[in-house]
Simulated assay, not measured.
Amino acid sequence: MQRIHIVAGGPEYLIPELHFQDEDIVVGVDEGVKFLANRNIAPNAAFGDFDSISSQEFSSIINDPNIRTYTFEQEKDMTDLELAVRWGLEQLPDMVVLYGVTGGRLDHELINIQMMSLGLEHDIAMKIIDTKNEIEIKNPGKYTVEIRSDLPYVSFVPFSQLVKGINLEGFRYPLYDADLVFGSTLCISNELVTKKGTYSFDDGILMMVRSKD
């Protein structure tokens, strides 16, 4: 399975330990390149206007023959992260994973989460990971969830105005053929009571958030 890991410039304390496989592609976005350097990780590609790093740091990136560098003007119609995500999806990986996209400015965090809908459009799985949460969104279907001691809480949030026919099995609070409207807290803070559970739904777009305390 090939994954593209994109590290952006959100608060570094929310970026977890990073471990990659040989076939993975690692992308730094603006200050995310510096975060990777701080962890002795060399990216395969770098995106941004690089207004968040020093000229010396930028020079080391642009002159590294092993890093494909994509530079952009500060004034543009897409954020640096969206440009990197769209490029990542064009590579047709099995999954795109985002780090450094939560915390900090709320406007950026909200749109970064909404950006996961691009994965659905391309039929490519996307996930956001930080030190406290994992987030993914799904089209209708049935999915398996494994219990995790590090992320015990499982919440389901409507990503569309209405999500129809939700079923939760193997959870402390099961649910059968329920509808979830935008803004509802019905499916917040559930927990698995079996090693594996399932969730399914018939229509709409649903976000699953796995969290720790």
Rank of each mutant, 00 (worst) to 15 (best):
F201G: 02
M95Y: 04
K212V: 10
F72Y: 15
D130S: 06
D130C: 09
E146W: 07
E90F: 02
G100A: 03
D94S: 11
L120S: 10
E90Y: 03
I15H: 02
Q21W: 06
T185R: 05
D177V: 03
I67F: 00
G100K: 08
E121K: 14
K195I: 04
L14K: 13
I25K: 13
Q21F: 03
S184A: 12
G170A: 10
E57V: 09
L175G: 06
E136W: 03
I137R: 13
G170P: 09
S184H: 09
E90M: 08
P158Y: 00
K34D: 09
S160Y: 02
G204T: 11
G100P: 04
M95A: 13
H122N: 12
G9Y: 02
N63E: 14
D213M: 07
A46H: 08
V33F: 12
F20W: 05
Q21N: 12
N63L: 05
T69K: 03
L162R: 15
I137D: 05
V26K: 00
F50D: 07
R39H: 12
Y173G: 00
V96C: 01
D202I: 01
E31I: 01
R86E: 11
K195G: 14
N112Q: 06
D203V: 00
F182M: 11
K212N: 14
T144R: 09
S149F: 02
I4T: 08
L151V: 12
K195V: 02
L120N: 15
V163T: 03
K164W: 00
P43Q: 09
S59W: 05
C187V: 10
G204H: 07
V157A: 03
K212D: 12
R3A: 09
M95T: 15
D24L: 01
E31V: 02
V97D: 04
K142R: 14
D94P: 03
T102V: 07
Y70A: 00
N66R: 10
Y199Q: 01
V101N: 08
Y153A: 12
F20N: 05
G119C: 08
I124D: 11
I6M: 04
L168D: 10
V181S: 13
M208L: 14
K132L: 09
M208Q: 12
K132N: 14
L18Q: 03
N167V: 12
A125G: 04
T69S: 11
V193L: 06
G165Y: 01
L18I: 13
S59M: 08
Y199D: 08
M208H: 03
H108C: 06
I135E: 04
A45H: 10
E17F: 12
L98R: 05
I67A: 08
V163M: 03
I61N: 07
P11R: 12
E90A: 15
N66H: 10
E191W: 03
M116R: 01
S160E: 08
I61R: 02
E90D: 15
N112T: 08
D177F: 07
G170K: 05
G119L: 04
F35I: 11
E23D: 13
Q2A: 05
D203T: 05
Q161G: 13
D130L: 02
K127R: 15
T194H: 04
E146H: 13
S211T: 13
D177N: 15
L83Q: 13
V154L: 04
M1T: 15
T131P: 10
V29W: 11
N66M: 10
S149Q: 15
